[in-house]
Design a protein around this nucleic acid. Structure first.
Lengths: 152, 152
DNA sequence: ATAACTGTCCTACTTGCCTATGACAGTTGA
DNA sequence: TCAACTGTCATAGGCAAGTAGGACAGTTAT
């Protein structure tokens, strides 16, 4: 079992498509700092083998992540966590953000969560992600050269 | 065109399942106060006719809303916005809430939204929903008897 | 040049989702 | 009781989603 295998855990009984489980877990890992900007992701075939799924399932997940502007894939070289700004313009970013926030707000309403408790929870989760990013950031510094990616 | 028809707008070109569009719009309407607690929802057949979809498509949406604890359906009488507490226990509510918040936080991270801007947006959206609820609540008071529902 | 990597495309199978129709059952008021 | 409502269930068709296998193309080091 490699260190890459620990990054992703598939639940075959969940009913949730495998490729979406991969997408979500990589999104989460990146936001919590477990994956660093510019870092190489596990390559498609080995990861597929470890998770016991088809290569195309992983390829589909990576394609989705690329369309979301989260990773960048160079044919023949590999896939890397994108460094630099999102490819989306301000109006699109705003729409995506408000949509996510509204879903959380509406859910909170139906769960009868008060405004105060909701805001506390939001701060708590922001802390959670920032704490993990901090922790990992200070543990190992410069493990690899981020610019070694573009050698061609 | 009835007042019920204005409550829901279906976009047949969106690719999003019709029944999910209905679910989301009713969730949203309830959270913004456009639908009041205990109020009767449009009944299945008339609504299906107005939206030009099958009855079972609406029935499926209502079934989903009931499973989410948002409406309550009495066979032979109709469907009503649920009054009273959610049927979910604290641990489930917490899981559902944190899941929604995390999705928003992760999305914000990848859109490179700062913590400050994110919190501002959250407050803004909370205001948005509360403002609508306030507005509607003061406009018309007691338009119908909420307890007239349980006559049997 | 060759071998061993990398990701990509084309094609195909299967399963489940979405939608639709018909028949059925509870409620209400004339 | 009867008619006109209400929601429900069983069944089925169509089609897209998810997954998979084979062949292909770019990269790198030997």
């Amino acid at each position: 079992m490699t260190v890459d295998a620990m990054l992703i855990q598939i639940d075959f009984k969940s009913g949730k498509p495998v490729y979406l489980q991969v997408v979500d877990q990589i999104r989460y890992a990146a936001a919590s700092g477990r994956l660093r900007s510019g870092e190489a992701l596990p390559s498609i075939r080995p990861l597929a083998e470890e998770l016991r799924v088809n290569r195309n399932t992983i390829a589909k997940a990576y394609a989705e992540l690329e369309s979301q502007g989260i990773i960048e894939t160079l044919a023949g070289k590999g896939c890397f966590l994108k460094e630099g700004a999102t490819p989306f313009k301000a109006s699109v970013r705003e729409k995506l953000l408000v949509k996510e926030i509204d879903e959380a707000v509406v859910t909170a309403h139906h769960l009868q969560i008060s405004r105060k408790e909701f805001l506390q929870r939001v701060e708590e989760r922001l802390d959670h992600f920032e704490a993990r990013a901090q922790e990992i950031g200070s543990k190992e510094q410069n493990p690899r050269n981020p610019s070694s990616k573009h050698t061609s």
